[in-house]
Design a protein around this nucleic acid. Structure first.
Length: 434
DNA sequence: TCAAATGATTTATA
DNA sequence: TATAAATCATTTGA
């Protein structure tokens, strides 16, 4: 407890630069009688009280006079005593504060968004993540990305400029206050701890201002990001080729249009869906989900489409047949000329679809003679392979569209592969095996 | 401008 | 957890 007065006195170093005062403290001539002393102290206090009302030069002169006053040490001691009595209240307010969780959140967010911390591509990762999160399809997002990056880097720049300004202002103000306190410590007892405390108060004030800056920066980033996301959220239709690929798979697996994860992945690749794996699988899942439900709801409407794809696949089957055992052919061009189309010509589903062309349940329009010929060709292909008649018979157990009377597909969703390169025409892979 | 098409999201269900 | 079904929100084409 007795450390405080010692500190205060020791803080008298500030007086070292004033030999006049030191002289006064040593000569012992100060205050010979009580009344005189009181008057002197009153005089000094009066001077202190009025010092702020004076002009700078006048105040300096007065300050100097005050510092040199013979009663100065006595007054200093009195102030020390008074202060010692109030020191508890000061100590109480001196405990360390834990880091503000809100500030930490803001810092983390700014760091994550690439605004704070080292610049790493101006938050392109965040932009990419944002794009991935929304499940964009295909390319042509680079323009939006660069726009996002440019705006983010603008925010970043403003943030850093402002932050620097605040820090500079904080430092300047702290230095100023410290100088002021040191200066004042000549006339009143100010411990280094108090200066420290004052500095921390200033820092706290400035950090609250910084927090406001961080908060508005975060808001700006959020607005930018939401705008970017909104832009990405705009639905984009798959291109024609992608739709054809998906439709081809769908109609050639009509009895069980539930692609496995691998199949979805491969379909996504073939469709050119270039976002993150999870997202592109979701996109394919969405497509199949929508397709299944919409097909089921209005089979008649989709019949024509089903026929078209069936016919198309039949042509492929014919081509495969014509080229001998070329099931492993890298590309099986179809009528649409889509490279890398699926070689499903031999699936039971296809046959089923084709069957529907002749079946009584056909709800669509008339089947053209060319399609009929394809059916015949396909039958020929199948008969050539041998050993398919069983599965053929099995497939005829299905209703033409593969939907059972309960309104669901006959088969439980069993994963089926996208490509079946190793399958010969007689394969009973996937759907027909059901 | 509007209806249809369509990808995504949400909710319920097994 | 995957899927069905309903719904939303956007795109497309007449």
């Amino acid at each position: 407890m007795d450390e405080q007065p010692r500190l205060m006195h020791s803080h008298g170093v500030g007086m070292a630069g004033h030999p006049g005062l030191a002289q006064h403290m040593q000569d012992g001539t100060a205050g010979t009688d009580g009344d005189g002393r009181k008057q002197d102290i009153g005089d000094i206090l009066q001077q202190i009280m009025t010092i702020t009302d004076q002009s700078l030069d006048e105040a300096q002169a007065r300050k100097h006079a005050l510092n040199c006053h013979r009663m100065k040490p006595a007054l200093f001691n009195v102030l020390c005593e008074i202060k010692e009595k109030t020191v508890l209240s000061i100590r109480g307010a001196q405990e360390e504060e834990p880091p503000d969780p809100q500030l930490m959140r803001l810092d983390n967010m700014l760091l994550a968004e690439g605004v704070a911390g080292p610049e790493k591509g101006g938050g392109s990762a965040a932009a990419a993540a944002a794009a991935a999160a929304t499940g964009g399809v295909g390319a042509d997002n680079s323009a939006e990305h660069s726009d996002y990056r440019a705006k983010l880097s603008q925010i970043r720049q403003i943030y850093h400029t402002e932050l620097e300004k605040y820090e500079q202002a904080c430092n300047e103000f702290t230095t100023h206050v410290m100088n002021l306190l040191r200066e004042q410590s000549r006339t009143r007892p100010i411990s280094p701890k108090e200066i420290e405390r004052m500095v921390s108060i200033i820092h706290r004030k400035f950090s609250s201002i910084q927090m406001q800056l961080k908060q508005s920066t975060c808001e700006a980033v959020m607005i930018l990001r939401s705008r970017f996301l909104d832009a990405r959220r705009k639905r984009r239709n798959f291109n024609k080729q992608a739709t054809e690929i998906l439709n081809e798979y769908f109609y050639s697996h009509l009895s069980n249009p539930y692609p496995s994860e691998e199949a979805k992945e491969e379909l996504a690749k073939k469709c050119g869906i270039t976002v993150s794996q999870v997202t592109r699988i979701n996109a394919v899942s969405n497509w199949f989900g929508n397709k299944r439900i919409r097909y089921k709801k209005n089979i008649g409407k989709f019949q024509e489409e089903a026929n078209m794809y069936a016919a198309r696949t039949a042509v492929n089957a014919t081509n495969v047949s014509a080229h001998g055992s070329q099931a492993n052919s890298p590309s099986t061009p179809n009528s649409a000329g889509s490279a890398g189309s699926f070689n499903m010509s031999n699936s039971g589903d296809l046959f089923m679809s084709v069957q529907s062309l002749n079946g009584d349940s056909y709800q669509g329009g008339q089947v053209g003679a060319n399609i009929q010929s394809q059916v015949d060709t396909l039958r020929h292909v199948i008969s050539q392979t041998g050993g398919y008649s069983d599965s053929l018979a099995a497939s005829q157990m299905y209703s033409p569209q593969g939907i059972n009377t309960n309104g669901g597909w006959q088969d439980a969703p069993t994963p089926s592969s996208v490509t079946s390169p190793t399958e010969g025409p007689g394969s009973v892979h996937s759907d027909t095996s059901n």
